[in-house]
Each structure stands twice: as structure tokens, then as C-alpha cells.
């Protein structure tokens, strides 16, 4: 049972690490600010959730897991808010997205 949990947490941590690095690569590869936000979103949600879930499995049913849950909740609430504020500020500042289809 212990080995099973260990393996599961290993897989989650590795997945989180992979998504995190992929998001970092995307930050460099994407052509403009708005598409870079999508890449940032990958590390911010996928990488963060998987990594914290892996840590939760390691901690078991303790207060540490509760704290990890709170860290995750705070990040899940604040990161889209910050991203949205950023996107809106950029648009209002006149940074036009390069788009293929504009259906505003």
C-alpha cells in the first residue's frame, strides 16, 4: 500500500514537473503577449495542481495536507484574477493581440 502511494505521488510530481517546464518553454516560444498568457496558464494550473497533489499524497491525512489544500485554493483563486487584471490592463494600454479570427 505504501509503495503504491509512493508510486502515485512520484507520477504526480513528475507530471507536474513536466507541465511546469513545458509552460516555461511556451513562455519563450509563443509569439505575442496574449498567447504567452496561455502558456503561463499551463504552469499555473496544471503544473501547480499536480505537484501539490503529489506532495499531499506524501503528507497523508495531516495538517500539512490541509495547508497544501489552502495553498492550492489560494493560488486557484488569485492566479486567474491576476491574469485577468493583466490582460485587461494590456488591452486598455493599446497592446493589440495578433489574431487569426477577430469576432468581437
Amino acid at each position: 500500500m505504501n509503495a503504491l502511494i509512493d508510486t502515485a505521488s512520484w507520477i504526480l510530481l513528475a507530471g507536474g514537473a513536466l507541465l511546469s517546464v513545458i509552460g516555461g518553454i511556451g513562455m519563450l516560444r509563443m509569439p505575442d503577449f496574449y498567447t504567452r498568457m496561455h502558456a503561463a496558464s499551463v504552469t499555473d494550473t496544471g503544473g501547480m495542481i499536480l505537484m501539490l497533489a503529489g506532495l499531499m499524497l506524501q503528507a497523508g491525512l495531516t495538517l500539512v495536507t490541509a495547508k497544501l489544500v489552502f495553498v492550492m485554493l489560494f493560488l486557484l483563486i488569485t492566479s486567474p484574477t491576476a491574469t485577468h487584471a493583466l490582460a485587461r490592463a494590456a488591452l486598455e494600454d493599446g497592446i493589440e493581440p495578433q489574431v487569426d479570427h477577430d469576432k468581437r
Binding site: 505521488s9 512520484w10 510530481l13 513528475a14 507536474g16 514537473a17 513536466l18 511546469s20 517546464v21 509552460g23 516555461g24 518553454i25 513562455m27 519563450l28 503577449f33 504567452r36 504552469t43 503544473g47 505537484m51 503529489g54 493583466l86 490592463a89 494590456a90 494600454d93 497592446i95
Partner: peptide
């Protein structure tokens, strides 16, 4: 496994720092 995770996080941080240095816009 924690070591692998921490290395991945540091690598991501470096990639992100490169973007922060390159810009081009302040956003």
C-alpha cells in the same frame, strides 16, 4: 523525487526569467 521536482521548478524559473529579461512589453 523531490529533487527532480525542485530541479524542474528551478529550470522553469530560469526560462521565465529569460522572458522577463527579453520583454518586449512591460506586461
Amino acid at each position: 523525487m523531490f529533487l527532480v521536482a525542485i530541479i524542474a521548478v528551478v529550470v522553469t524559473m530560469l526560462l521565465i526569467l529569460v522572458r522577463a529579461l527579453l520583454g518586449p512589453t512591460v506586461y
